[in-house]
Design a protein around this nucleic acid. Structure first.
Length: 492
DNA sequence: GCATGATCATGC
DNA sequence: GCATGATCATGC
């Protein structure tokens, strides 16, 4: 039972009626809690993270606080969720072309019980019971604002039963992936990348562990909606013009996302790069990234995507699942010609970030669509594709690379040696080398060495306050052994 | 041949 | 101008 601060019949909304609650919640938009109360208690900064939601229940919904485990509005049932928004900026990693706002964080849902989930069925699962209807209150995230000053921007209800069939299917498949790992005593191997929209996010401090089926321990995790999925929810509830198109057509919702992607590429597999260009009606290019341009054009051809739009954002499922498309050219021995690069990191940011919120983790711990071309003699074919995410033990290895990089930046140990060569000098650095990790390394990434980012600590050797832009690179041999060849094994 | 630093072309 | 997705060039 919910207890209210005033008699239930006097409430300004009906707590048993979904539409009434949704309509009443709209009154929060463009307001702060200060607009509803004069009685501001002093906020315990960094304290109870759920406090904002609690205050909305008290002040706005006139509910008493209690610690019941049932839904906030048990008769509907409806669960109140508050979450921060950041402005969508065109150059960010997730620009959210469909809306003005994007999610500041993934949305934490209920905890994952590694022992019980194995016996559950999705439709009667605790996950669905708890999260089938979410009352979303999204506010503008500003670091130093108290909870009473948070500007609420978008509200609305997300209901599992009201989302498109293909979206339900993808969430159900994600839940099944998590269930299957837990049921096979693999809960310790769960990562964010295991989910497309629904992912098993870490919960609590990094040293908090929970028992799994065989008694061994695994990092405590919660179901999360990925921030990329939340971007789409935010756009939808904020009534933005949705500028995306789905890979799915009505009636084919029973196909998994990875199968759907394969289906789209299948007609091109085995074709010569030149013939793909002809069949897509695009002129052949000679630049370095010509095969990447081909991959993106294959995706664009599926929909007739507008020319200047990023396909990773325009394809609905790619944008919600945060898919990165990487095109790799293999030689006859299945070895990628090159290592795989990512956008450069900023020294001032790596200096202050933690692993869990780092750019490098965000770049690596996501879903990848690898498009493999293979060069045999003078000809280059579209060999295969792989929808892939990095396993946890490899992520731990990438974490070491990140940590060492951060250490270099923090201590100002950047330049190792300025070495004379034939036509001038090269500057050797202390960043993690390819020889130090089987997975990834740090190397320059810019138009030229003059393109730099500022250093938070001047370089000890040269006293320079900026340095050539760098990024993380996935080693080509790692790609061959762990992505390309493993995919072949799975096909057999 | 490979690791590492440097750079190129595209497109917004 | 610069971010991005790549390849090139040099020296060991």
């Amino acid at each position: 039972m919910i207890e209210f601060l005033i008699p239930e019949k006097d409430l300004p909304y009906d707590p048993k009626d979904k539409d009434s609650v949704a309509e009443y919640t709209k009154l929060l938009e463009n307001k702060t809690l200060n607009d509803f109360t004069n009685n501001v208690d002093i906020e315990n900064k960094g304290g109870n993270k759920g406090k904002f939601g609690q205050k909305i229940e008290n002040i706005f919904f006139l509910m008493k606080t209690n610690s019941r485990s049932e839904a906030d509005f048990p008769d509907i049932p409806l669960e109140l969720k508050t979450a921060g928004l950041k402005p969508a900026t065109p150059n960010s990693r997730r620009p959210n072309i469909s809306g003005k706002w994007k999610a500041a964080q993934p949305l934490p849902l209920s905890s994952i019980n590694f022992i019980e989930i194995g016996n559950e069925d999705f439709f009667s699962s605790k996950f669905l019971q708890k999260n089938k209807n979410l009352l979303c209150v999204f506010y503008e995230y500003e670091k130093d604002k108290s909870i009473y000053e948070r500007k609420i921007k978008i509200t609305g209800i997300w209901s599992f039963h009201e989302i498109p069939e293909s979206e339900k299917k993808i969430i159900m498949d994600d839940w099944e992936t998590i269930k299957s790992k837990a049921a096979n005593n693999q809960a310790h191997n769960l990562t964010r990348g295991d989910g497309n929209y629904l992912s098993p996010g870490p919960s609590g401090e990094s040293h908090i562990y929970t028992k799994q089926l065989d008694g061994s321990k695994a990092r405590t995790r919660k179901f999360n909606f990925k921030a990329s999925y939340m971007d789409a929810v935010i756009a939808r509830l904020g009534s933005s013009n949705i500028q995306t198109e789905s890979l799915y057509k009505e009636g084919d919702e029973n196909i998994s996302l990875s199968e759907k992607i394969y289906e789209k590429f299948k007609p091109y597999i085995g074709m010569k790069d030149k013939d793909i260009a002809i069949s897509l009606g695009i002129s052949e290019q000679e630049c370095k990234q010509r095969h990447s341009i081909l991959s993106k054009n294959i995706l664009k051809a599926i929909f007739g995507v507008p020319k200047n739009i990023n396909v990773e954002e325009y394809i609905d499922e790619f944008s919600k699942a945060d898919v990165t498309v990487k095109t790799v050219k293999l030689n006859e021995n299945n070895m990628p010609d090159q290592n795989v690069s990512f956008p450069a990191f900023k020294y001032k940011e790596i200096y202050r970030e933690q692993w869990d919120n780092s750019l490098i983790k965000e770049q690596i711990d996501c879903k990848f669509l690898f498009v493999f071309f293979k060069e045999i003699g003078n000809e280059c074919f579209l060999d295969s594709i792989s929808y892939w995410n990095m396993p946890i033990e490899d992520l731990e290895e990438v974490k070491k690379v990140w940590k060492k990089t951060k250490e270099c930046v923090k201590t100002g140990k950047i330049v190792k040696e300025i070495k004379k060569i034939k036509n001038g000098v090269i500057r050797l650095n202390h960043f993690p080398k390819k020889t130090e990790s089987r997975i990834a390394h740090i190397r320059p990434h810019g138009t030229n060495k003059k393109e730099t980012y500022d250093l938070p600590v001047p370089d000890i050797l040269t006293e320079a306050t900026s340095y050539t832009k760098q990024c993380i690179w996935l080693n080509n041999n790692y790609i061959r052994d762990n992505i390309y060849l493993k995919k072949i094994e799975n096909d057999i």
